[in-house]
């Protein structure tokens, strides 16, 4: 099939968001998520949603990509909203048989739907604008304190990087082996479940064999270049906090302060 495989969902670009340090992005994402949950009324939630939308626009990635990720969770959003519709207090807006929709229920439903959408949007920003290698790199740095508790952070991050790196390779290999076996008349498209599972053996065995061969080669190549774990290892691409990060931090702090103010001084929601 030889098609291009996009690994993860990274969309290379040069936008402000792309240029943020991966560590800042992870930390800010967590903060945004926390504040999206902290929003207690529509004013606060509106502020967070607006902020998420602005970040989305700042990535300069086609909005279609974001719509795609929203479409994936559409069903979840609808079901959660539907259930929330029937819970809540306040004025009864609609009543039929055992179903009763109250003002609080309606508020809840809209609130939950907007909240999930905002969460998905802002998390897509991270995966769309950060390459997998930057992501694992940043995770490794952020988790570094765990080394105090004898957690092998570097090794874990290296395993993650290698695993991600080899996904396209293995996909391509699977493709090749499948073609080779199909060329010998292997039938993988018909028959019942058992037959199909059995038909995979001619693909899986060579795939396993070659994975081990690759692992062996890679280990050898790494040792030849004197790899011996994370100790004393320097990096080619050093993660650096820059003025962009400071800017992002300040803007975010202003937004977060706004959320707290909205929560405190603006009317609470009927729930």
């Amino acid at each position: 099939m030889g098609r291009n495989i996009t690994l993860g969902q990274y969309m290379p670009g040069r936008s402000v968001i792309h240029r943020l340090d991966a560590r800042s992005k992870i930390l800010l994402l967590i903060a945004y998520m926390v504040f999206i949950f902290m929003a207690q009324n529509f004013y606060a939630l509106f502020l967070m949603t607006l902020a998420s939308l602005l970040v989305v626009l700042a990535t300069r990635i086609s909005l279609n990509m974001y719509l795609k990720s929203l479409r994936v969770i559409l069903v979840v959003v609808l079901i959660t909203a539907l259930f929330n519709l029937f819970y809540g207090n306040g004025k009864v807006l609609f009543e039929w048989w055992i179903f009763k929709i109250t003002e609080g229920g309606l508020n809840n439903a809209v609130f939950v739907a907007v909240r999930i959408a905002a969460l998905v949007l802002i998390s897509s920003v991270l995966t769309y604008t950060t390459s997998p290698s930057d992501l694992t790199d940043a995770l490794e740095r952020l988790l570094k304190p765990l080394t105090l508790f004898k957690v092998k952070v570097h090794e874990l991050a290296m395993m993650m990087t290698i695993a991600l790196r080899f996904i396209p390779v293995l996909l391509e290999e699977t493709d090749k082996i499948m073609n080779a076996q199909k060329a010998r008349g292997a039938d993988m498209e018909s028959g019942n479940v058992f037959k199909r599972v059995k038909a995979l053996i001619p693909v899986l065995i060579p795939l396993f064999v070659s994975s081990f061969r690759r692992a062996n080669d890679l280990a050898m190549a790494m040792e030849c270049r004197c790899y011996n774990g994370g100790k004393g290892r320097t990096r080619m691409k050093v993660l650096r906090f820059t003025r962009t990060d400071l800017f992002g931090l300040i803007v975010s702090l202003v937004i977060f302060a706004g959320v707290i103010l909205c929560n405190m001084y603006l009317p609470q929601l009927v729930r």
Binding site: K176, N179, A180, Q181, A183, I201, I205, P206
Partner: peptide, 10 residues
């Protein structure tokens, strides 16, 4: 016979 056909033996 594809390139490196030995990788398809199973």
């Amino acid at each position: 016979v594809f390139q490196y056909p030995e990788y398809q033996l199973f």
